[in-house]
Amino acid sequence: MKNLIIALLLGTSIMAYGQKEGKPRQQMQDFTPEQRAVLKTKKMTLHLDLSQNQQDQLLALNKKWAKEREAKKAELKSLNREEMTSDQKFKQMNEMLDTQIAHQKEMKKLLNEKQYDVWKKSMGKKSQKLKERKEHYAKRQRLHQK
């Protein structure tokens, strides 16, 4: 009987922990593009030890990029990826990479060499995490389709 009670308590506590609300990514979706830009700038200031001048410049860039990202997101929602031709997909991917290259060039102008190296390494880690998350999602989708 004691084992049953312990098992029930353990099971309910695990379920309650697993259903916590407010994952960081979901919280960020509630913010406006400008609010996201401010938070991103502050995080980067802490991470890269930016000067006040760099902070101001980065905030302006982040606001611009956040607005562009919001517009692109709205545009992509209206598209049906499955109905896109390979040329349309290529064009979309090419535009995305051109944007990333432009952002990287702007960051290189803004940051000193040491800060740029730290930023570049952190971007590599973020892209690796994103890749892992996509692989995990695709794996889950395949399991549910079977």
Results as ranks from 00 to 15, higher is better:
W119E: 08
H47D: 13
A60S: 05
N3W: 11
M123N: 14
L59Q: 01
N53C: 04
I14A: 13
L50C: 00
Q141C: 03
L50I: 03
L59I: 03
S127P: 00
V118K: 13
Q92M: 15
K23V: 11
P24T: 04
G18N: 14
I14F: 12
A16D: 01
K126I: 08
T41K: 02
T45D: 13
L4R: 12
K20E: 07
Y17T: 11
E34V: 06
Q92W: 06
F90H: 12
S51H: 03
T85K: 02
L111M: 06
K109P: 06
Q57P: 04
T12Y: 03
P33C: 03
L58Q: 03
A71C: 02
K20C: 01
V118Q: 09
N3G: 08
T85I: 03
L8I: 15
Q92F: 09
N112Y: 06
R133Y: 12
W65P: 00
K125E: 15
K126T: 05
M15T: 11
H144L: 12
G22Y: 01
E135T: 07
D49G: 06
L58G: 01
I101Q: 11
E135H: 11
I14Q: 04
Q27E: 11
E21N: 13
G18E: 07
F90G: 04
K23E: 14
N62H: 09
I101S: 08
D117S: 15
M44L: 15
L110K: 00
E70Q: 10
E70I: 01
Q29A: 11
E106S: 12
P33K: 04
E34N: 09
L130G: 14
L97F: 10
Q27F: 04
K134A: 15
I5R: 08
N3I: 06
K105W: 02
V118M: 09
D30E: 15
Q35F: 03
F31C: 00
K2R: 14
N3Y: 14
K40A: 09
K91I: 09
L76I: 05
K125Y: 12
Q128G: 04
Q19R: 06
R25E: 13
D56P: 02
R81N: 09
K64W: 01
Q88S: 04
S51T: 13
Q141P: 04
E83G: 05
K126V: 01
G18C: 07
A138V: 07
M107I: 08
K126Q: 13
L97A: 09
T45I: 01
F31H: 13
P24D: 08
N53A: 15
K40Y: 05
I101M: 12
K73M: 14
H47G: 04
N94L: 09
K63W: 00
K126Y: 08
K114L: 07
E82Y: 07
M107G: 03
A71W: 02
K146Y: 04
K40W: 00
N80V: 05
Q52N: 10
Q100F: 10
L61G: 03
K131H: 14
P33I: 03
Q19W: 13
L130W: 10
L39F: 04
K43R: 11
Y17W: 12
K67P: 05
L61W: 03
